[in-house]
Design a protein around this nucleic acid. Sequence first.
DNA 1: CAGTGATCGAACCGATCGGTACTATCGGGC
DNA 2: GCCCGATAGTACCGATCGGTTCGATCACTG
Lengths: 195, 195
Amino acid sequence: MPVSKGSTIDPERTRATILHAATQMLYECGLDGIGVAGLCTRLGISKETLYRHFGTKDGLVQAMLEARSDRVIRWLTDAVTAAGDDPADQLTGVFDALQGWYDEPAFRGCGLLNAATQHHTGAVRAITARHLDRYLELLTKIADRAGATDPRVLGQQLLILVEGATIVADHHDRAHAGEHARQAALTLLAATQRR
Amino acid sequence: MPVSKGSTIDPERTRATILHAATQMLYECGLDGIGVAGLCTRLGISKETLYRHFGTKDGLVQAMLEARSDRVIRWLTDAVTAAGDDPADQLTGVFDALQGWYDEPAFRGCGLLNAATQHHTGAVRAITARHLDRYLELLTKIADRAGATDPRVLGQQLLILVEGATIVADHHDRAHAGEHARQAALTLLAATQRR
DNA sequence: CAGTGATCGAACCGATCGGTACTATCGGGC
DNA sequence: GCCCGATAGTACCGATCGGTTCGATCACTG
């Protein structure tokens, strides 16, 4: 059955729907953990539709990763904003948000890092590197607002904590990684302010 | 040419040679980045030999990961030993060793974490989780010797720094990740001793 | 109401995958 | 010196992969 029952023909909306559903599937199964055929079946679309919107599987992957990066950065930016003006509170907001993520049953690590590890093509790695850039910018701003001696160094250290916590949560101890990282971040923040 | 020229028939040695060469190849290409056929060609062995020694590709992967974990842990343990008795020096030894690794052109992140991300089968993830356990044990011992208020928490934080530094080195800034993590580790160490 | 285009479902393609089978050949132990 | 086992090389298998094509069908537009 083409076009099926009451489905609105709206390419933009179709594309967005595919992107959203495929993001979850590919995150859950891994980029190579599910083929295009299986993906289309579980998305309830035909291969032709997928290929018309995204050209290739890699095209879908890249579109999905860019959208995911946007979403993650927005999510953490909001967490910072919601935490108020105190840099320590902002860091707490970030790591608490991360711990909330780790607690989700579907948590499988950072989708962008996973993708870069699986397909180490130039394009995917570039998207991931840019993602870390944006992360770093967010964290460095906090370090700057906190009056850190060297905000760039503290920003990098916070980035290491964020990524390390995500890795440890995925592969070792998801229950406490966020909290341990949060405490470490606050200690580093306090130490740099004290100088 | 079977058995080829002056090749010694020594199954143990053959197995070890395959394991060593395959470890490098699979680290460089990723577990799914090269097939069994290509692997055998570049290793100069036949598929039959590989399958006799390891049963399946997964068998090879698991044997390789276990060997790699042993090797990495021994390497870092040696770095700690070589650094003397001062916990701060020991941490410096660890992160300097890591930075030396990041500086290698062939550096592609932690092979065990990469493998766990690529093949999230139970067996591979278990080997990786155990690898992090051993890492944690090493770091917690340092925290303990340093007289940390809570050595287990500091050990976890150091683990987060180690893994975070490796991730950041792989995907963002390989030149400074080790140094930033080292500074952070020393700051955390000093802070926990001060209390 | 006619035509356009988005979509489905299925068949199909060549390539590649992990794994097996078989033969020929060589080294090492008896 | 003979024989067994380890090995190379090659052909082969079924499954699956990413990607293409085509016809039928339905929603929307004019």
